[in-house]
Design a protein around this nucleic acid. Structure first.
Lengths: 176, 176
DNA sequence: ATAATAAAATACCAGTAGGTACGAAATTTG
DNA sequence: CAAATTTCGTACCTACTGGTATTTTATTAT
């Protein structure tokens, strides 16, 4: 996970991972079955360990502005996300993934959109979100903007700049 | 250019290009010097032939809303951009590019931001754009949003969906 | 201690990447 | 037409990919 997180998952070879983990290649194949299995396992671990924070933010019962601020903080400033996001990195190079990993990417993507949609629907019911766009559209929008911010961070852009851009993008939800 | 446009530039091998163009490998190397030179030449041609349309839109003297609508149309609906954008594809995988190509990517990126900034400054002077954000920030924002839309199209997403997302993102400029 | 078995690593496979040495073909010059 | 020169493509190189056959090591049973 460390190796995939630090660089581009598609550019990290099995050989490099074995060297980094001081593990023989057959041992890795016994454990994970192959590159696809390894990536899927990494993505699962990453979802449990990191992406869960995003879902957490949505379930904290914060105000809409507070939730957006927390999301902005997490994606654009938090030092943990300095190297970007394994999930969005994999999603960006989806065509290079094995079938199992690709399925995981798709299902995590769908789960994220669903979580945002649920949050927005609740927020609208509570009279906090007054936008007139359909919740599914805005949910997808939020996921894409978070992905953009995390991709920018992976590219080494200044967190302050990323924050400004993301805040601008999310301001749509506050006002419209 | 066709091959790079159709897929991921980093995944198209020199061998594949030679086969596609019915050209021997040494011939390609004599002409372009190597993969880096070829990509740089492709990017130059692409900028002249395709990206120029974006700069064109900015210099048509349209209203702010008209300009944004034209940009949305171009990036999310125009059939020419069905496979995404060579420039943003290369920028997304910048770490894999050779030095010359990377330099071109950076300079095109800077030129695009500068063009948008000039447009916004003029638009503000004409009293058409009333946003209070700094022009450079919004210029960068617009480039990133266009890139996001074109990346989504390259991933095969429904143009109508891409259009909705991009329109939502650009609505920031209209209102704020 | 020794034979049978389970586990793990070394060494290798085929395929492909970018790149080039060198011989063959075409062209220019006398 | 013949010789010198330039142009061009076949065949090859090394490096590295994901993946595995085979041998070596460790463990267990007798």
């Amino acid at each position: 996970m460390t190796a995939y997180w630090a660089g581009d998952p598609a550019d990290v070879s099995i050989n490099a991972i074995c060297a980094l983990a001081a593990v023989s290649k057959p041992a890795l194949y016994r454990e994970f079955g192959g590159e696809d299995g390894l990536m899927r396992a990494v993505l699962d671990r990453y979802a449990d360990q990191v992406l869960s924070e995003i879902f957490d933010i949505l379930s904290r019962g914060l105000t809409l502005d507070g939730t957006l601020a927390a999301l902005i903080q997490f994606a654009s400033v938090d030092a943990k996300m300095d190297a970007g996001c394994v999930f969005f990195k994999m999603r960006a190079g989806k065509h290079r993934l094995g079938p199992m990993t690709r399925d995981r990417v798709d299902s995590i993507d769908a789960a994220a959109v669903a979580a945002f949609e649920a949050y927005l629907t609740a927020s609208r019911a509570a009279g906090e979100w007054t936008g007139d766009q359909p919740a599914p559209v805005v949910a997808r929008y939020l996921v894409e903007q978070l992905g953009l911010a995390l991709t920018q961070r992976a590219a080494g852009e200044d967190p302050a700049q990323v924050q400004i851009t993301l805040a601008l993008a999310l301001s749509v939800v506050r006002r419209a």
